[in-house]
């Protein structure tokens, strides 16, 4: 079922990315659009979901482990436990619903401060659903201003038309590659992964418990 886990660790870095934001802003759709080039109506995420995508950026082969969290506040005690160890966070809002944008500063930015373990973690603001231009209520300028204030990257995209979807992840990853402390974490991930994929006989003698 899972071919990626059994294949050789032919990547240079492993990065953990996290998608957060209000319910129904399109986090899962954005992820699906990025990982499998498709768009469809998705059920609300229960708990968390998780996808892996291999990409090549700047000549480096990267394994991206992307966590997709449930948006509803009620699940936050659960989802907050997934922030640990993330190198990049994508904060998503819906350009056609203002409250999803205001909640980013009211709720989500605070969450990040509280739970992120690496303060260098790269944050990216993404305004989704630009395909519904006629229904837009949050302007691009507002997004840029927010991004400037909170020191994050910014893009507008559409998971549906796939406009700027690749770019969201690419820009985020480029910035991570530019940050030494995150790079170090990313290669630790690779180390760990290589170790994990060694033939099992090497650790057979140590794992006598079962």
């Amino acid at each position: 079922m899972d071919s990626s886990s059994s294949s050789q660790p032919d990547f240079d870095y492993l990065f953990k990315l996290l998608l957060i934001g209000d319910s129904a802003v399109g986090k899962s759709s954005l992820l699906l659009s990025f990982t499998s080039d498709t768009f469809e109506d998705l059920s609300p995420t229960i708990g968390v979901d998780f996808k892996v995508k291999m990409v090549t950026v700047g000549g480096k082969k990267l394994k991206l482990a992307i966590w997709d969290t449930a948006g509803q506040e009620r699940f936050r005690t659960l989802t907050s436990s997934y922030y640990r160890g993330a190198q990049g966070v994508i904060m998503v809002y819906d350009v056609t619903r203002r409250e999803t944008f205001t909640n980013l500063s009211d709720v989500w930015a605070k969450e990040l401060d509280l739970y992120l373990t690496n303060q260098d973690c790269i944050k990216m603001l993404v305004g989704n659903k630009v395909d519904k231009e006629s229904e837009r209520v949050v302007t691009k300028k507002e997004g840029i201003d927010f991004a400037r204030e909170y020191g994050c990257l910014f893009l507008e995209c559409s998971a549906k038309t796939r406009v700027n979807v690749e770019q969201c992840f690419e820009e985020l990853v480029l910035k991570i590659l530019d940050t030494p402390s995150l790079l170090a974490e990313g290669s630790k991930g690779v180390q760990r992964n290589i170790f994990k994929q060694k033939p099992p006989e090497s650790d057979a003698s140590t794992s006598g418990c079962c």
């Binding site: 319910s23 129904a24 109506d41 998705l42 059920s43 609300p44 509803q72």
Partner: peptide, 10 residues
């Protein structure tokens, strides 16, 4: 919230 969810349920 309910409006958003029923239109993506089954």
């Amino acid at each position: 919230l309910i409006e958003k969810d029923v239109v993506r349920t089954d």
